[in-house]
């Protein structure tokens, strides 16, 4: 058996990577796909469907038996020639929009879709007003500073400070 040319640390890293990848692969049930395109579509679809049992996971990640059943259902519908929209509405009809990680835009979800944008707008407007005001202040005082004026201002400020300290 020839000596491995890989250094020990490199071998360790490769082993760790291999172990990580294998657990990733084992979490998925083996499916027979008709084409790589179908497989890609399947993955993209179950990535954006929520598992109802462990609700912060999608169908692709979840090991719950219901998630497996729903994955089978999705694949079966894909093989039967149904569109992504048909599959999503099949699930939403049964489990509600909650099952969709990308919920449809409708009055009940306006807050979800446009809320962050509204907050950014409000923040932006507030920031703009604030910056304008700040910029306006020094511009007025120091519009055309000459030495005399600066001395006068300085003297006044010092007088004020002394007045406070006494």
């Amino acid at each position: 058996m020839p000596e491995s040319r890989l250094s020990t640390p490199l071998r360790a890293v490769l082993l760790a990577a291999g172990l990580l990848l294998s657990s990733q692969v084992l979490a998925i049930d083996p499916q027979d796909f008709e084409s790589p395109a179908q497989e890609a579509r399947y993955w993209a679809l179950i990535e954006e469907l929520r598992c109802l049992v462990c609700q912060n996971q999608n169908l692709a990640d979840s090991d719950a038996t219901l998630a497996k059943d729903l994955r089978d259902q999705v694949l079966e519908m894909m093989v039967a020639g149904q569109s992504n929209e048909q599959i999503k509405s099949f699930l939403a009809d049964r489990y509600g929009d909650f099952v969709l990680y990308r919920p449809p835009v409708k009055p009940a979800t306006w807050g979800l879709w446009f809320g962050p944008l509204v907050l950014v707008l409000i923040g932006g407007i507030a920031l703009t007003f604030n910056l304008r005001r700040r910029r306006a202040l020094p511009a007025q005082v120091l519009a055309d500073p000459d030495q005399e004026e600066l001395d006068r201002e300085l003297a006044q400020l010092e007088a004020e400070r002394e007045g406070k300290e006494q």
Binding site: L52, V53, T65, L66, D69, L70, Q73, R94, Y95, G96
Partner: peptide, 13 residues
């Protein structure tokens, strides 16, 4: 046993 009718009813547990 397959859980298909359960899925139709939106059963999740």
């Amino acid at each position: 046993p397959s859980g298909r009718t359960g899925i139709d009813f939106g059963v999740y547990g």
